[in-house]
Simulated scan of single mutants.
Amino acid sequence: MMRLKKLSEQVVVITGATSGIGLTTARMAAARGAKLVLAARSEEALGQLEQELRARGVEAFGVPTDVGDQDAVESLAHVAMARFGRIDTWVNNAGISIYGRTEQVSMEDQRRLFQTNFWGVVHGSLEAVKHMRKHGGALINVGSEVSDVTVPLQGMYSASKHAVKGFTDAIRMELEKDGVPVSVTLIKPAGIDTMFTVHAKNYMDVEPKLPAPLYAPELVAEAILSAAETPQRDIFVGGAAKVNSVGGFHMPRLFDKYSEAFMFGQQRSRQRSAEHRRDALHSPDESQELKQGRNLPDTHRNSAYTRLTMGANPMKLALLGGGALMAAWMLSQNRQRQEQPGAQQH
């Protein structure tokens, strides 16, 4: 198996570092002694985060970067190399969503989303591989459970995460074929209690929400940092992510029907959307930077499934996958009963 350095010996690049998963990962990596190069669009927020981490004795350097700009990502890599002489782990985390029916979303907004979510991953991955090809390292791309199964009202977000999965799998195989010592991991979180819905562009008449269950961003950060030290192909964060992936693969039509019946309502809150609502699609919302999440009361702080699978051997993963398939089948039976005439829907 490919050997990776301990975090305390690593230089780690993290995109989308001033909010949610990226911010949580940066703080946790700092606590474990990593040297950090942090990227985000907000220069002010990066400066504050850099100051916070340096006050704790961490070598951290912020680089204002729009990951959708290839030249900016190239400059990010050059700064990391100039500052520390190497890159050991590169985390492509920056992302954004849009809520609304696909036909309603402007082409400008759809393209901007793909520029960040997909092309940002491509730009970062190619820079990472360029600088880690000789000495090795870890490339970690943050996908989603919707890399495998789609939800309505977030059609372009789902499409971008499908694209991230396809790209990540392809570059992994190409590197393995050539014997390049770079580990490539795709992280697939379920719904995470971050500023995700606050940052998202919203075309609906009400504020968006994430369907339960929600998990804490610390669980995703833990998975990312585990992959930085131990090579692993995929990590699902939250048992719900695995159930949805397996169920969507083996019972796609049933999952379509469930989403049609329930996922429209489950993504709509009761709060009216403001007429001049702010979002972070085209530029950062400074008022919402440096927040890990919303600390919602029903957020799951642990995931037994994720902890069991991080660094697991293939046999354990097969057994857990079989368990997820059984869980998905049981869930489907419950959903079928709910969809019978006269069944109560909430």
Rank of each mutant, 00 (worst) to 15 (best):
R335C: 06
V182E: 02
I224Y: 03
H135V: 12
D178K: 13
H131Q: 08
L76A: 08
N202W: 11
M310R: 06
S125E: 04
A29P: 03
F118M: 13
S332I: 09
A94W: 04
P217N: 04
G311V: 00
K161L: 00
V13S: 01
T24N: 14
A318F: 07
D69G: 07
I192S: 02
A227R: 02
S147F: 02
R112Q: 12
P314E: 08
Q333E: 08
F167E: 10
A29H: 11
R272H: 07
P189S: 04
M81H: 11
R86L: 14
A170T: 15
N92K: 04
G47H: 12
V105N: 09
D69Q: 15
V220P: 01
V180T: 10
E275D: 09
P64Q: 04
S144I: 01
Q266A: 10
A82P: 07
R253D: 11
A31N: 13
R101I: 14
A223H: 00
V12N: 00
P341N: 15
G323T: 01
Q115S: 05
D234K: 01
T194W: 07
A312E: 03
E339I: 07
K6R: 14
F236L: 02
E339A: 14
A170E: 07
G191E: 09
V91A: 10
M330Y: 14
K242L: 12
A30T: 11
E207S: 11
V11H: 00
V122N: 05
F84E: 04
L319A: 05
F262I: 11
P341E: 09
A200H: 01
E103M: 14
K35G: 13
S332W: 12
S283C: 12
Q288R: 07
V121L: 03
D71E: 09
Y157V: 10
R337M: 05
L126M: 13
D71M: 14
A328R: 01
T299Y: 08
Q70N: 15
I224M: 10
E103W: 09
D66S: 12
H131S: 07
K130H: 11
G321L: 01
V198G: 07
H78F: 13
F196A: 10
I98C: 04
R337S: 15
L210A: 06
A128I: 00
M263S: 11
L317T: 05
K201P: 02
G20N: 09
R56Y: 08
S245D: 06
I96K: 03
K165S: 03
Y99C: 10
E52N: 12
L308F: 14
G47T: 06
V180Q: 06
E108C: 11
V220K: 02
